[in-house]
Structures are given as C-alpha cells and as structure tokens.
C-alpha cells in the first residue's frame, strides 16, 4: 500500500471517529451548556410578581450586595459546610480505621455501618424529623432518661445548624469512610514494617505514616463532600424549610424560594450563579491542596 493510500485511510478513519462521536459530544455539551447559558441570561432579567420579564443588566448582582438575606444565607451555608465537613472527615477516617483493623467484623455489620448514605436524603430527613421532634421524638426521651434536659433540636435557632450538620454527618460519614478505607488498603505495607522495626508506637505510626499518606485520599473525599455541602438542600427543605425564622436559610434554600415561591427567576439565577462560583472556588482550592499533599 502506498504512503498516500495509507494517509487517506487514516484520514477516513479519523473522520469516521469524529462523525460517530459527534452526536454524543454535541448532546453532552448542549445538556451542560444550555442550562448554564440560560441561567446566565436569566440572571440579567428581572421578573415581576406576575412573572412579567424585562432586561435588568447587572441589577440582580448589585442587589446581592445590599441584600441581608443573601449575606445571612452565605454565612449559614459556610457554617454548615465547615461544621459538616470537619465532622465527616474526622469520623470518616475513624470509621475507616475501625473497619480496616476489625478484620473479623461480620459482613452484615460492615454493611450496616455504611448503609446510611444509601438511604434517600428525603427518607433520612423524615426519619430524623420524627426522632428529633421535641414532644414526640425518641431523642428527647433518651436525653431525659439519662437525666439530661430536653432540646428543641431543629426548632431552636441556636441548635438548628449543628443538628442539621449532625443529620448530614450521620448520613455521609460512611461514604467518606468508604473512600478512606480504599486509601488505607492501598498504602504500601513496607513502610509499616519499617516503622515496626524502628519501634514506633501505634499513635506515632498513625500520626507520621498513615495520616500523611492518606491525605490525598482525604482531600479527594473533602472535594466530593464540599460540592454536596455547599449545595445542601434536601434535608433542610424536609426538616426546617429554612427555619425557625431564617436560622437555616442557606443560599440554596433562599434561591429556591425566590425562584419557585416568589417567581423572581432573575434574582434566583443571580443567587445560584454566585453559589456556583463559590462551589467552583472551593473545588479549585481543594484541588490545589491535593496537588500539595500528593506523594
């Protein structure tokens, strides 16, 4: 076969590959690009209470700056994010270590440990709503049976964020544990053998070997959870709807209400794009951190 013929065949194969994959690529790009572009366009529109629409330029974004609910929502979102992420990473690593070392733990117990994150968040929210009901729930019954004072849990402006963070952590800590467990199983045994020979205590081994080697895995888990935590919606919507008052009114809940209850899709889009920018910022920051701790 001549060189020209070979080039021609290669060109045809390339063309076929492009032609065959093009529909999927176009579809995927359209599915991602269209909603984003549409939301950006909506962010420049204003909607009256009756849904009448007009061009607003940057008015929605300048409104954000003076909107108390936006800053309050941002603060609630960040508080919930930090509290939940810390709880989930600390207890996730602990749970992973327990599962890693408890080799004889029956399969059913292991499955139970990691089962909460398989539960739909709506079901988890409903379940905890019943458990934490200050009058009828089991949580206060247990507290009181130990002589402790009852709590208002989700009905207390002070305790609502820690309580929601606890519910989310109950559900998602096993997910973090599963990721960290994978990391633990891939650590090289040789470094542990060397530590053992050097007489390192279990705590020193964990502090100086396990934790540093696990950091890239932990940061990966943090990235995955960060995206979810900054967009936190379902459990709050089920349990408090942003209340009491606006004590759990995260940016996501606020944006949802502005859009779907008050019909101001322009301002809601501006809110959600701002939240998206925050999520991207967090992911980028964690990615850089992952690069720094890689080994």
């Amino acid at each position: 076969m001549s060189a020209t013929a070979a080039t021609s065949t290669q060109d045809r194969q390339k063309l076929e590959m492009v032609a065959l994959s093009a529909p999927a690529v176009v579809f995927t790009v359209a599915m991602i690009a269209f909603p984003v572009v549409y939301t950006i366009w909506l962010g420049f529109q204003t909607f009256s209470s009756t849904g009448k629409q007009s061009f607003a330029g940057l008015a929605n974004y300048s409104k954000l700056i003076s909107d108390y609910e936006f800053w309050h929502g941002l603060w609630i979102t960040i508080a919930l994010f930090v509290l939940s992420l810390v709880l989930q990473l600390v207890f996730g690593v602990w749970l992973a270590l327990v599962l890693f070392h408890a080799k004889r733990l029956p399969g059913i117990v292991r499955s139970l440990f990691i089962s909460p994150f398989m539960m739909p968040p709506v079901v988890a929210g409903m379940m905890w709503l019943v458990i934490l009901d200050p009058s009828l729930g089991a949580a206060n019954y247990i507290l009181q049976s130990f002589g402790l004072p009852p709590s208002d849990w989700l009905a207390s402006p002070t305790w609502v964020i820690p309580t929601v963070a606890l519910i989310d952590s109950w559900q998602w800590t096993p997910y973090v544990a599963l990721i960290v467990l994978g990391g633990l199983q891939s650590l090289p045994p040789s470094v542990y053998e060397a530590a053992q020979i050097d007489g390192a205590s279990p705590f020193k081994t964990f502090q100086r070997i396990t934790l540093p080697l696990l950091l890239p895995t932990i940061v990966t888990a943090a990235i995955l959870r960060s995206v979810d935590l900054l967009r936190f919606f379902d459990i709050i919507y089920i349990t408090t709807q942003g209340g009491p008052g606006n004590a759990s009114n995260t940016l996501n809940i606020y944006g949802f209400r502005v859009g779907f209850e008050f019909f101001n899709f322009g301002y809601a889009s501006a809110l959600m794009l701002t939240l998206t920018a925050i999520v991207f910022g967090a992911v980028l920051a964690f990615n850089r951190l992952r690069g720094a701790v890689a080994w």
Partner: peptide, 12 residues
C-alpha cells in the same frame, strides 16, 4: 404550645 412549635404545621 408544644416545644418546637415553630416547626409545626398540620401534620405535627
């Protein structure tokens, strides 16, 4: 009212 009444609607 009951404790936590700020989260009470018809179901509760």
């Amino acid at each position: 009212g009951p404790p936590g009444v700020v989260n009470y609607s018809f179901q509760q």
